[in-house]
Design a protein around this nucleic acid. Structure first.
Length: 778
DNA sequence: TATGAGTCTATTTTT
DNA sequence: TAGACTCATA
């Protein structure tokens, strides 16, 4: 987005300013700050650009490319520019086009890691035992294939779910581990067969002439390693290499880059921000960026610290927060903008009130003339969205959810695509299996198994096996006839491939196969929407040159541009918000356990906490003018009401940039829960201060200090003391059978004690799990 | 093959 | 609590 100020005013010919500008260099270099200029003009050898939030990262990247091109240092085909998402690639193309004032269709090597790998693999497929028309499997295909592998190994699918194996394999591939390299500890995890199953899966992929996403990288690495001549040809070709979001690269991507950059003075420019690394759980290695100078000796490190996005209050709050992280390269962001409003922290009674407060504030801002498009609510976990959606619907406030299920991931789209794949590529067993009995045509599990067995035994594709089975007596008459008719249809469709435009043929296929009819008959509420999606699919096909081109596109690009209609508030997860910016940002749910998320702390200890903190940093730095943080003191988690404590991150914000909001509604918000006690601990004038002076909070503080002062290099368990909302194993001072009083639920009797968590059977509201610090002995 | 009862499990998600 | 999913049963 526009993370930099607009370029200087258009040149007036002949003026002093114009002459001065001409002396200063080409127009695209105008209006840059010194660091940005350096990042663009430092061209010999490796460069690492540490670009803080809102410092003009994309501008540097695109201008650098424009600069290389206009200086005649390389032709478009000699520049490799890698991004993570298609969206980022698209954006870069557009912006370069604007900069050099012509089409950049000539930048064939600007794309995602994956799309560039596909391109390389297609031209050298044979070298890695693939055919040129190999299929790319997505997660869904992958899981179905793994199910078969698990079955073949005679393992209980329940105990060893395919999903989990898929996740493991994914992790291994992220770390560039082939089956023989899987560490024994990891392999042991899957009934001691992890590596074997992985190997079997890879073998199946090869026979299917297919690769999964991870393979795209790994196969190219293998290609380069086993064929030095091919590697050299690419090293020579890519005179300049640029990588966006370097902090998000995983081991495989790193190795891939390293191979290409294996020459003297590689012109490699990596742009990233270690403070915005939030994808560690997906295999990203912050370490890659932290280690850059060691990996690429002689590297020039340039820091972009001038922020063009946020007010200084927002910037200082975010900077102070992120300074609590240890493993970082360190940057000091500054802005020339004004102080602006302070970052607000508001305490709500529960998530419902939180949504109400935010909804009210949005309406107020709207009345003051702010655009809904310029406001966003960023949540830690998607379940939080529901409360806001409910609230916005009752208010009639238009909103859009960003993220969520993608167009091409919907069942009806995947079915339709499977029909097309099976038509185009008769050897695509997975596609065939998916639709052979959809709509139901009497080809049940037993028949499919027979086809499968024949195919496996003879080493032929299922489609061919099916064809042969229609001519034998092996299948029951009914199944055989049904199968024959389906095979005839496929033959017919294939015959029309060259005669008809792809969208038209696709329409015929969906019609004749009975697929459309299946949804027309279905009378469930979402059937019309699905039919609409199918139409949308056909429409989008028209833009492609051929059916094959279309299929290639959707296997890599899983999103579609959805038309935007009217002003809307945006609702999304913090992860989805990276790279975006809004005038006003609402950040609800800043509570221990939710943010930082308990699971992150449990699974990754200190590293997990630091990643959560970076997430918080990303959240705050999305805001241009206003950042409003919220936390609720009560939240329903898995159906149980839990008292929650304010996030430690709130405590890590600098007081001078933060304003605590007293909503006034706090004092009366206790109503409705057994009534009569309205004694909220936010009764005092300042809810923020009072939160921070409750016994629970203070004890948490003490625990934190104590553990922080003890040997910090101790094993992760040291975190336990820091973490409030989990069992600490310490004696809570309560025992089963005791009577207690809880501010929200009233009187009750303890039925179980688990560390600092108590299960209390409340007289009026039944059994609940609560933290010991929120009840009193009675 | 359609349905209901019972069970399980609840971050973040791109390619 | 709620949703997804499995499994048995008609």
């Amino acid at each position: 987005m526009h993370d930099t100020p607009p370029p200087a005013t258009s040149p007036r010919p002949g003026g002093i300013a114009a002459r001065a500008r001409a002396a200063a260099g080409p127009a695209y270099l105008q209006g840059l700050n010194p660091e940005q200029s350096r990042a663009i003009e430092t061209l010999g050898g490796p460069v690492l650009v540490l670009a803080g939030a809102g410092t003009g990262k994309t501008r540097v990247l695109t201008t650098r490319i424009a600069h290389i091109l206009t200086q005649g240092l390389a032709r478009p085909g000699q520049i490799l520019a890698v991004t993570f998402t298609n969206k980022a690639a698209r954006e870069m193309k557009e912006r370069i086009g604007k900069l050099i004032g012509e089409s950049v269709e000539g930048m064939p090597w600007l794309g995602t890691f994956h799309s560039i790998c596909v391109k390389i693999l297609r031209s050298h497929a044979e070298a890695v035992d693939l055919k040129r028309d190999f299929t790319i499997l997505d997660t869904d295909d992958q899981i179905r294939l793994l199910k078969q592998v698990i079955q073949a190994a005679d393992l209980d699918e329940k105990r060893w779910p395919a999903r989990q194996l898929a996740a493991s394999i994914d992790r291994w591939k992220n770390r560039a581990l082939t089956p023989d390299k899987v560490p024994s500890g990891d392999a042991y995890a899957f009934a001691g067969m992890g590596d074997e199953l992985y190997k079997a899966y890879q073998a199946r992929l090869k026979t299917l002439n297919a690769v999964d996403f991870g393979d795209l990288l790994l196969e190219v690495i293998r290609l380069f390693r086993e064929n030095p001549d091919i590697l050299t040809s690419y090293q020579d070709r890519f005179r300049y290499m640029l990588v966006d979001e370097y902090q998000d690269t995983n081991v495989a991507q790193y190795l891939w880059l390293r191979l290409l950059a294996q020459k003297d003075e590689p012109n490699l420019c990596c742009v990233g921000d270690d403070d915005q690394s939030i994808y560690g759980w997906r295999g990203a290695e912050v370490d890659n960026i932290l280690r850059f100078e060691k990996d690429f000796p002689g590297a020039v490190v340039i820091r972009l610290e001038q922020n063009y996005r946020s007010t200084s209050n927002i910037l200082e709050a975010a900077s102070h927060l992120i300074a609590h992280n240890e493993g970082r390269l360190g940057k000091t962001l500054h802005t020339k903008g004004d102080a602006g409003d302070k970052v607000t922290v508001t305490c709500a009674w529960d998530s419902e009130e939180e949504a109400r407060l935010i909804g009210d504030e949005i309406e107020r801002l709207q009345r003051d003339g702010e655009s809904l498009d310029d406001m966003a609510i960023l949540v830690r976990a998607s379940f939080q969205m529901r409360e806001f959606e409910d609230r916005f619907i009752t208010l009639g406030l238009p909103y859009r959810v960003i993220g969520g299920p993608r167009f091409y991931e919907r069942a009806e789209i995947r079915d339709a695509v499977a029909y097309l794949r099976a038509t185009m590529q008769p050897a695509d067993d997975l596609a065939f299996e998916r639709i052979v009995n959809t709509p139901r045509r009497g080809i049940g599990d037993a028949t499919v198994r027979t086809i499968h067995d024949v195919a496996r035994a003879r080493g032929i594709p299922m489609m061919q096996a099916a064809l042969e089975l229609t001519e034998s007596e092996e299948l029951k008459a009914k199944a055989r006839n049904s199968l024959r008719s389906l095979m005839e249809s496929f033959a017919r469709w294939r015959g029309q491939l060259d005669a008809l435009p792809q969208a038209e043929l696709a329409a015929i296929i969906l019609e004749e196969s009975g697929y459309t009819e299946m949804w027309q008959r279905e009378r469930s509420a979402d059937a019309p929407g699905r039919l609409e999606n199918l139409k949308e699919l056909l429409r989008s096909m028209e833009e492609f040159e051929s059916m094959l081109g279309f299929l290639e596109h959707i296997s890599l690009v899983m999103d579609t541009e959805s038309g935007d209609d009217g002003e809307k508030v945006s609702l999304m997860t913090l992860h989805a918000a990276k790279g975006l910016e809004f005038g006003t940002v609402f950040l609800p749910g800043w509570e221990e356990g939710l943010f930082p998320h308990q699971r992150s702390l449990d699974e990754s200890g200190r590293a997990g906490l630091e990643e959560e903190r970076r997430l918080a940093y990303v959240g705050i730095t999305r805001a241009k003018r206003r950042a409003a943080l919220f936390f609720a003191t009560n939240r329903r988690i898995h159906g149980l009401w839990q008292s929650t404590a304010a996030s430690r991150f709130l405590d890590e914000l600098p007081e001078k940039n933060v304003e605590v909001v007293d909503t006034g509604s706090l004092r009366t918000s206790g109503g409705g829960y057994g009534g009569g006690y309205g004694n909220s601990r936010f009764d005092e004038r300042e809810p923020f201060a009072s939160t921070y002076s409750t016994p629970g909070w203070q004890r948490a503080q003490k625990n934190r200090e104590r553990t922080a002062n003890s040997n910090p290099w101790k094993e992760p368990p040291m975190l336990e003391g820091e973490v409030l909302a989990r069992s600490t194993g310490t004696d809570s001072g309560y025992s089963v059978g005791e009577r207690v009083f809880h501010q929200k639920f009233g009187y009750g009797r303890i039925t179980a004690v688990d560390g600092n968590k108590l299960t209390v059977k409340f007289d009026h509201s039944g059994p609940k799990r609560v933290l010991d610090s929120f009840v009193e002995k009675h």
